[in-house]
Write a protein that binds this DNA or RNA. Structure first.
Length: 210
DNA sequence: CGTGAGATCGCCT
DNA sequence: GGCGATCTCACGT
């Protein structure tokens, strides 16, 4: 399959190929289609300190070690789901975090799932995106290129240009790698925030500032 | 508009 | 036991 081959390369080369692609989710509630406008690449074991795969394969990240074109869905901050497209090949971990998309159809269903949001913000941010599309842990590991899949990826024609920057929320040794890719001038691209170490115990952080 | 805190839990050390 | 590939709300400017 052609799309599978396009997803099987080095993760930072594959990532921009997802810009403009459609993500289509199907459930009993209906269908939502969104156009991807922002992604981040995460590399393999022992090569990318910012990646979940850095310390090797575990039950949680095992989808990252499988073939390209599958979903890697993880739970974070005790409440949010985020979805990645794996890049393979088998045994070589890699994944592209889908950070933001523009909802193209199924807007009413997405609004219901994200009540209170403006249309622009429906899928602007990785956790907002999974909520708008109804993606959760049940989608982990599924094939995004199989026609009967509840979550489908359809690549767009290759792009001429895109923008890049360091990744959002990644600190430490991986902070400088410019593996965030996005479509410039798209309103649905998320607000860029550099990594912030989380505040420690309240008293401590106050002392540290003085 | 920017900053800061809280929510909340699975994973890995 | 610590902390995270986040979001939202409250509050000050």
């Amino acid at each position: 399959m052609r799309a599978r081959r396009l997803l099987r390369g080095p993760v930072h080369q594959v990532a921009p190929r997802l810009l403009g692609a459609q993500l289509r989710s199907y459930s009993d509630s209906g269908e939502v289609v969104a156009r991807i406008v922002e992604v981040e690449a995460y590399g393999g074991a022992n090569e990318d300190p910012g990646s979940h795969a850095f310390r090797g394969q575990t039950p949680r990240n095992s989808a990252m070690f499988g073939d390209a074109g599958h979903a890697y869905v993880y739970f974070t901050y005790g409440m949010h789901w985020c979805v990645n497209v794996t890049t393979g090949p088998v045994g070589s971990a890699g994944a592209v975090l889908i950070r933001a998309a523009q909802v193209q159809s199924g807007v009413e269903l997405a609004r219901r799932r994200r009540s209170g949001s403006t249309d622009r913000d429906l899928a602007r941010g990785p956790a907002r995106l999974t909520k708008a599309l109804g993606i959760d842990g049940r989608h982990n590991g599924i094939d995004l290129l199989a026609p009967e899949s509840p979550l489908l990826l359809q690549l767009a024609a290759p792009l001429i240009s895109w923008a890049s920057s360091p990744r959002t929320g990644v600190g430490g040794a991986g902070a400088l790698i410019p593996w965030r890719f996005y479509l410039a001038d798209e309103p649905a691209v998320s607000a860029y925030r550099p990594h912030q170490p989380r505040s420690r115990a309240k008293g401590v952080s106050r002392l540290a500032r003085e």
